[in-house]
């Protein structure tokens, strides 16, 4: 069955799984895990250079060697101003004008400040950025982000790093139905079945970091996630059977002996 391509802002990607590049036990494990995930888009953070330490270049060397698509984020930004400044620096440091936009509203939940997010999206779109905002699982906010020019919307499945799975499946479904841009579930996935579940709901892609990086075996989990996203997508396209309360026999009822 031929799938429609996964295309964001006119650019088509081979994998519907997007992975982060932080929180791995080591650089070696990170590179093996990202390789195993099959992901083509990898997120990075923008931070002040460490003037005391050297050797932080290995991440970028790896990403460039594999020709991965680097998606900088504005993680850790709590204001429109900081997020916009960080996005501008990311564009200057990188090769593209794409940004995974985060404007965080609360330290404990890391839930987005959706009001600020819409404002920051509008500013960055006007400056020529391709903006992928990390947002709530709120269809109305997603619609506002789309109206503001977002190239995709990235609703959370559950709080960042929580591994709780998709908390509001119905909202994710509604977001998919409303959206005319790709929907990427970002955050909340804990294990492979949850990634598959997200894809079965009809989202275009899944983004994760902690579920892979902090798994006991990140490389194996990355492989599992690759298959989960593929399986979930296939199942979504294949169309599941309706749920029924009672059994329907799987074997013919004709030709039974003893009747």
């Amino acid at each position: 069955m031929t799938d429609t391509p996964f295309t964001i802002a006119g650019r088509t990607f081979s994998s519907r799984l997007i992975v982060g590049s932080g929180k791995y036990p080591s650089h070696a494990v990170m590179t093996q895990a990202i390789d195993a995930s099959g992901a083509e888009i990898v997120t990075v953070a923008v931070r002040r250079v460490d003037l005391a330490a050297r050797g932080g270049e290995s991440l970028r060397d790896y990403l460039e060697a594999r020709q991965l698509f680097v998606l900088p984020n504005t993680a850790g930004c709590y204001t429109v101003d900081d997020a916009v400044r960080t996005a501008r620096l990311a564009r200057e440091a990188g090769l593209s004008n794409w940004v995974k936009l985060e404007v965080i509203g609360d330290e404990r939940t890391l839930f987005p400040d959706t009001e600020a997010l819409v404002v920051a999206t509008r500013i960055l779109v006007s400056e020529g950025f391709v903006v992928l905002p990390y947002t709530n699982d709120d269809p109305i906010v997603c619609r506002k982000l789309e109206d503001a020019g977002a190239a995709a919307v990235m609703p959370l499945g559950a709080p960042i790093g929580s591994g709780l799975g998709i908390q509001n499946e119905n909202n994710i479904r509604i977001i998919c139905e409303f959206a005319t841009v790709p929907v990427i579930v970002d955050a909340g996935v804990g294990t492979a079945s949850e990634a598959a579940r997200a894809m079965e709901l009809g989202v275009d892609g899944v983004m994760m970091q902690t579920a892979i990086a902090q798994a006991q075996d990140p490389v194996a989990m990355a492989d599992a996630m690759k298959h989960a996203v593929l399986a979930g997508r296939l199942a979504y396209r294949a169309g599941r059977i309706p749920r029924k309360m009672y059994a329907t026999a799987s074997s013919p009822v004709e030709g039974l002996i003893g009747t």
């Binding site: 590049s21 929180k23 791995y24 953070a45 931070r47 002040r48 991440l59 970028r60 620096l89 990188g94």
Partner: peptide, 30 residues
């Protein structure tokens, strides 16, 4: 001083007393 300065103007941009610079790079993140 709160504005991005692009590579081509680095050689002629002179850092003066009281200037504020942020120098960033990419690090691992999600």
């Amino acid at each position: 001083n709160l504005s991005i300065i692009r590579r081509p103007v680095w050689p002629q941009t002179i850092v003066q007393e009281g200037d504020r610079l942020e120098i960033v790079n990419f690090v691992g993140g999600g």
